[in-house]
Design a protein around this nucleic acid. Structure first.
Lengths: 199, 199
DNA sequence: AATAAAACGGAATCAGCCTCCGCATAAATA
DNA sequence: TATTTATGCGGAGGCTGATTCCGTTTTATT
């Protein structure tokens, strides 16, 4: 005896548990891809990534139909950690300090190649769909911090979180020179100083 | 009767006039490449570019051995115009106004796709050789403006021109939204405000 | 006009992208 | 546990574009 007819479509009811091997592969791929993008930039060979992950190209493409999808996958993974940090800072610090700390962390994080720098361009403001519609975690994170600092009177009311974000992403493109940390700090300070109320 | 021996190497003396067709082709290629990169991004087909320029692939590769070299070629071309603008502003305006004006122009210029946005990443701070050693025209331009504004006391002494530049490049990555001009203005103002002496 | 350096172009090689489909396997069912 | 079936696997194959190589053509020079 069968549940229903099984011949007709009844997608709303039947939701199968996802296969374990699929999950496993997905994670493997993301892991390998992150390393590959970090090392070789956003044009790393997908074929090679698949091979290193121990799957066929078909599998990779099923999980991530396009290169951008894969990049976005890696990106999302990393970005959630930053979002958590924002929450943490907000709890522990004064509004303005939290914002400053988080901005430094962002630059550091990207610069340390935990996130693929060149890929960010494609994604952060470029032709990708990440920005269209659903805002990024990062977006939500900095937006929260900025709102909070506005409320406390530490920041100008007319400030847009996006502006800061874009500036920071640009700042992360260096990697050049040993003094990037100095440089990042300077820029963050400039941004903060320029964002205070006009008094 | 021959000039010298002509058998041995005497490169310092003999410098042949460059062939006219070579020059012509070089320009054609740059022109077409600029359009292609602007339209299709930094991964535009080189084969196609060559075809449109009316040359064989071999010719393109002889002039620009790598894709980055070609991008850099286009980039340099465009960038010289910006450098000229800096000089002009410096002559006509007060130091701080000149800097502000030029920063706006930079963002606008990039945003208007006169320069290939995605390519900039590869080049401005990325893996390219443009930054290593020889500074860009852009670099020289903003550096001059900043120096001038420091001297007049409008800017903090500890400011680095690079910091501003990076922030601006980041700002140009948007393309999103019709309000980019607003956004750019806000950011420029923030940067300027944050760069003033602490008084 | 003759010569040789410089540049040309496209054929050929090669690498990486992406699709398609028969086979394998894990989840659901009995 | 045995069976069924959806789901996922992976690699062969077609394709596009990158890059090299070399015989031919063009140009500056004598």
């Amino acid at each position: 005896m069968q549940k229903f007819s099984m011949t007709a479509k009844n997608p709303p009811t039947t939701t199968r548990k996802p296969r374990t091997d699929a999950l496993r592969n997905r994670l493997r791929i993301l892991e390998v891809a992150k390393a590959a993008f970090t090392r070789q930039g956003a044009n790393a060979s997908l074929e090679e990534i698949a091979k290193q992950a121990g799957v066929g190209p078909g599998t990779l493409y099923r999980h991530f139909p396009t290169r951008d999808a894969l990049i976005e996958g890696v990106y999302r993974n990393e970005v959630e950690k930053l979002a958590e940090a924002a929450t943490y800072f907000a709890e522990k610090m004064s509004p303005i300090d939290a914002l400053r700390a988080w901005m430094m962390l962002l630059v550091e994080y990207i610069a340390a190649k935990h996130i693929i720098a060149p890929a960010l361009n494609t994604i952060a403001g470029g032709a990708s769909r990440l920005h269209e519609g659903s805002r990024t975690f990062i977006h939500a994170a900095i937006d929260g911090l900025v709102k909070r600092a506005k409320k406390s009177g530490d920041l100008r009311r007319d400030l847009h979180a996006d502006d800061l974000l874009r500036a920071l992403i640009g700042a992360s493109h260096m990697g050049s020179g040993a003094d990037w940390q100095q440089s990042a700090r300077r820029l963050v300070d400039i941004l903060i100083a320029g964002s205070r109320p006009l008094k």
